[in-house]
Design a protein around this nucleic acid. Structure first.
Lengths: 149, 149
DNA sequence: GTAAATGCAAAGGTTTTGCACGTTA
DNA sequence: TAACGTGCAAAACCTTTGCATTTAC
């Protein structure tokens, strides 16, 4: 029964969560999306494939998936949250540029290794200094995209 | 008339903004604060010194001050924004740790130079690659503080 | 069959807007 | 005295909660 299951299904079940149709639809949508949709955008799109879904379930599902590390929540301060897949076979670590005018999010992968090395070093120093357990980090650049500048 | 004016007053006037009592009260409060207050916290505190102020003005003032680079807006994704002074004589560059359980924000200054060097390098590469004009960045670590872990 | 998950409607919390009035330069 | 700034109330938005019903295992 284990083989043949998508990676995320296994992760859900291992932690006692059920692999429902709504969750499946949301994860599959996010896996295919190269954008960083907000809960409402996810709701509007997923609804076309799985018409029964409600916005509430989208929010609740996103919370669960984030908790399991299947997705990542991004906040840029424009009043809406955004989500992206953070695991699975095709996934690659990356960071983000945010256009403060139009809200466009651009993925980038420059100097990832160098950055990871430094951030790990910083993270370790901080854990020790403040007895703080670091789970994750976010590095965002803010500015104006090509169209908006 | 120029000497004797606080640094922020000059910055406001140079850009055509007026140095009102409300703005003065907010900036002075933020200059003294080592915390990262939300608009509501700013409102509640400043109101004790300057009772006439309204929450709306706090929001509008924060927007102006951020636009002028006098303060910085911090977002951690818990549904409220936070602000801190980002200039003036006593100010020192720093970054933040955020406790996802209690919302505590800790300032830190580890490896600042090394980090700045790398981020400038990344910033330049990204500006070029995406024709993106970078204004600022935020690097946040998320986790659990001493009390909450 | 039982506990988990869902949809709907309502509520909650933060931030923004309209407009008449007050203040600053 | 002309703009600019402000306070109040209302609106707009995003997100969460309560509860009866459905679904997964």
């Amino acid at each position: 029964m284990v083989e043949g299951q998508p990676w995320w299904q296994l992760r859900l079940r291992k932690r006692g969560y059920r692999a429902t149709l709504g969750r499946k639809a949301i994860i599959e949508f996010l896996s295919r999306s190269w954008k960083h949709p907000s809960p409402e955008q996810i709701y509007l799109t997923v609804r076309r494939i799985y018409p029964g879904i409600g916005l509430t379930s989208v929010y609740r599902t996103l919370e669960v998936l984030e908790h399991l590390g299947i997705i990542r929540k991004l906040v840029f301060g424009d009043g809406r949250s955004r989500y992206e897949i953070s695991g699975g076979p095709r996934w690659r670590y990356h960071q983000h540029l945010f256009c403060v005018k139009c809200g466009k999010v651009i993925d980038y992968q420059s100097y990832i290794e160098e950055k990871e090395k430094l951030l790990n070093k910083i993270g370790k120093a901080l854990s020790k200094k403040f007895s703080f357990k670091i789970n994750t980090h976010q590095l965002h650049f803010y500015g104006l995209c090509k169209k908006c500048r």
